[in-house]
């Protein structure tokens, strides 16, 4: 089908997905709860923080706290995106929308792409609004403007695309809750592995690694390959949060995590289209 015909169809399905999600009562409650939680952190900015007996300046406090909040929101919305995605095909099937849409001159890939984009937009907007609350608190209450905070939020939404596609694919292969837990597991393992990798960079860990361990060298290499190829969700968050750092001297850091997650999105997206093409519509 021509692109000129495909694009409006995908846009319509994306719009319906977005509207349907936003109209869910559970979504509204979740959103209000998260917004209140983020709003409550404004109190944390007003304390006097001492490090090694020296008081931290307001700018450092704002950036450090905002960066921590950025990571918490980023990780939290990934869980929310997985929750929203895990039931989308089942709900559409049960409510008759899947057969209604696919009985029209609409190809299956239009439907899947519309659904995935709709969920991505919903969760990215969810995250962007929560990040915007932090941005507004720092801008209005503390007079610290961090427009890069919002740019970082947009960059971080790549992670949400990965989560949405992965859950949609797995929900076609296994029960919804298992699909959700699998993707959650991928995220947690990645976060823990990145944490261990960061800790292993310390001098103590370096010294320990140089001790003879008895493990064959090939094992270490194998785990390194797995570690490097594992979805770099935390890496993308760190890359995004590097934008928030004061001064541009640190740069963007490595862009490998971004490429890693984008490649995963493409591979999982292709598998999702292939799997859904063979799916029986009930």
């Amino acid at each position: 089908m021509e692109t000129s015909k495909s694009l409006p169809l995908i846009t319509k399905i994306t719009k319906y997905t977005l509207i349907d999600e936003v109209q869910q009562r559970s979504f509204v409650i979740l959103f209000v709860f998260c917004a209140i939680c983020v709003f409550l952190i404004r109190g944390c900015y007003q304390g006097n923080y001492m490090v090694n007996g020296q008081a931290l300046d307001a700018g450092t406090i704002v950036r450090t706290l905002s960066k921590a909040t950025f990571h918490v929101i980023g990780a939290g919305v990934m869980v929310i995106a997985a929750l929203l995605s895990m039931r989308i095909f089942r709900r559409d099937r049960n409510e008759g929308m899947q057969s209604c849409i696919l009985s029209k001159p609409i190809a299956r890939w239009h439907y899947v792409m519309g659904k995935a984009l709709g969920l991505w937009v919903v969760s990215a907007l969810f995250m962007f609004i929560l990040h915007s609350i932090v941005f507004l608190i720092t801008s209005i209450n503390l007079k610290v403007f961090m427009p890069e905070y919002l740019v970082a939020s947009l960059l971080c939404s790549i992670n949400l695309l990965f989560v949405v596609i992965a859950v949609l694919l797995l929900s076609l292969l296994m029960p919804d809750i298992v699909a959700f837990l699998c993707v959650l597991g991928i995220g947690v393992v990645g976060f823990v592995a990145d944490g261990i990798a960061a800790a292993s960079q310390s001098q103590i860990a370096q010294a320990m690694l140089q001790q003879p361990t008895g493990h064959p060298q090939s094992d270490l290499t194998w785990w390194k390959v797995v570690y490097v190829l594992w979805p770099k969700l935390l890496g993308v968050q760190q890359l995004a949060s590097s934008l928030i750092e004061s001064g541009a001297s640190r740069g963007f850091g490595t862009i490998y995590p971004l490429i890693n997650v984008l490649v995963y999105c493409l591979i999982l997206g292709a598998l999702l289209f292939k799997r859904f093409r063979n799916e029986d519509i009930v």
Binding site: M1, N94, E95, G96, S99, S103, I106, A107, H110
Partner: peptide, 20 residues
């Protein structure tokens, strides 16, 4: 091919519509 469904109307057995 999706084009073949250009001028088709379909009513499913036990039809459902989103309650929202």
């Amino acid at each position: 091919q999706a084009e073949c469904r250009q001028s088709i109307g379909y009513l499913a057995e036990n039809n459902h519509i989103p309650p929202s």
